[in-house]
Write a protein that binds this DNA or RNA. Structure first.
Lengths: 228, 228
DNA sequence: CCTTATTAGTGTTATGTTGACACTAAGTAT
DNA sequence: ATACTTAGTGTCAACATAACACTAATAAGG
């Protein structure tokens, strides 16, 4: 039992857990599953699972996300490792180590099927009871993205390719959970030179149409100045 | 071989690696060992090792640090997890996952003995050839602490309990690797209310003695405003 | 076509922060 | 007493932040 490796080394259990966020109707949502088995059977939890030998934690994350929620990691716009938690006793057999990831995207639709475990997006302001320390992990991820959008262009990952300045501001407000001043926001954000105006307009009802903008890059880049 | 766990799950190899920094003579140093065995026999590397079953990564870090360098984690002033690297092929038997930690302290002395592996502090500006991707991990850790001292009081961990403003400024300059303006530094840092003056003076040669200061807290706290 | 409703879009001012810059103060050594 | 060395201090200009209200452009409905 102990000599799987030649020198008698036995590693602990390794798992991954993933926090997928997206904005829906100007609210911030996180992807959860309902646990089908003990421990915490019937409770909600982050999608995750065991990290098998021979796969990277990133690969294990992509695999478990697809299996448990039907979400393809390639449809996410930004994925990054968050933190590694020792405190998650995922497995009744003993101590487990969980590497966590955060993923951001738009129009992500979990697939309901036999193999999936009732995946769905939940408003982060009204979370159900969560298994393990997953509430803590979600808060950690939320803090990370709040911080990240102040010194990078990470907000692109939550927006469509073409967007109005109002949509951009709303995305910030949704992540921050507070309102921002319209004129100050526009002045500051435009000075960062992360986006450029297009010739297209967004028509959306009985009012003046808004110019549509596009990010210069759809990859993460750090800002010269921080944003807030 | 595959059924150590009842359901056939076999975890990958789990290791920890630790980046210990301290300031010596106004230069920034990192703790390295000389590898006694292949792979990379004879090359320098971060202290680290296998994470056994039943211990947390933090416990594995403390254990391997003590074993390989004689440094007791309790003598460090600040320890935090950095990142988990999949890319460290520590083990020729295959893919390994390495959880890394950063530790900061002062007057840390590695112990030379049979069990230790030639531990010593190396100036981060003149590093020897390093095993694995440990150079990358050290740079990652260095970036982290550079950033951390701009929005927390983390610098306390590199200073003695009583210190002068000049020593404080030198500590920042050492971590940043660049010089700061004396008047602006003092004005800004004192406005953060992290430290208070004591009645003691530091006499150090044929010149005006300097007031000694003390941190209000010897624990990590975030700043209201960022510092730079 | 005119009115209304609705969101888009814009500038100024006061306050605070940053960054550049040079001299006096207090001690020791000779 | 003089020289030397590090400690300690203030101003000003440039820039960033935060508070704040009106006009512009369109669609819908009468």
């Amino acid at each position: 039992m102990e000599d799987m490796y030649e020198d008698g080394y036995t590693p602990p259990i390794l798992t991954v857990d993933t926090v997928i966020f997206q904005i829906i109707d100007d609210e911030f949502y996180v992807l959860l599953i309902k646990r089908a088995a003990d421990p915490f059977k019937g409770a909600y939890a982050l999608p995750g699972g065991y990290n098998a030998i021979g796969e990277t934690t990133r690969e294990a994350m992509e695999r478990t996300l697809l299996t448990k929620t039907g979400v393809n990691c390639a449809d996410l716009r930004l994925v990054e490792q968050l933190y590694t938690f020792d405190t998650v006793a995922r497995d009744p057999r003993g101590h487990a180590v969980s590497v966590t990831y955060m993923g951001l995207g738009r129009d992500i639709v979990p697939a309901e099927s036999d193999k999936t475990q009732n995946p769905g997006f939940f408003n982060v302001r009204e979370l159900p009871e969560l298994a393990y320390d997953h509430k803590h992990i979600i808060e950690y991820a939320h803090d990370r993205i709040k911080s990240k959008i102040t010194y990078t262009n990470a907000i692109f990952s939550l927006l469509p390719e073409l967007f109005t300045l109002t949509q951009l501001q709303k995305a910030y407000e949704t992540v921050f959970g507070r309102e921002l001043d319209k004129r100050n926001f526009r002045k500051k954000f435009l000075s960062l030179n992360l986006i450029h105006e297009t010739s297209e307009l967004h028509r959306d009802g009985a009012h003046r149409p808004a110019k549509l903008y596009r990010f210069n890059k759809q990859e993460l880049e750090a800002l010269a100045r921080s944003f807030d």
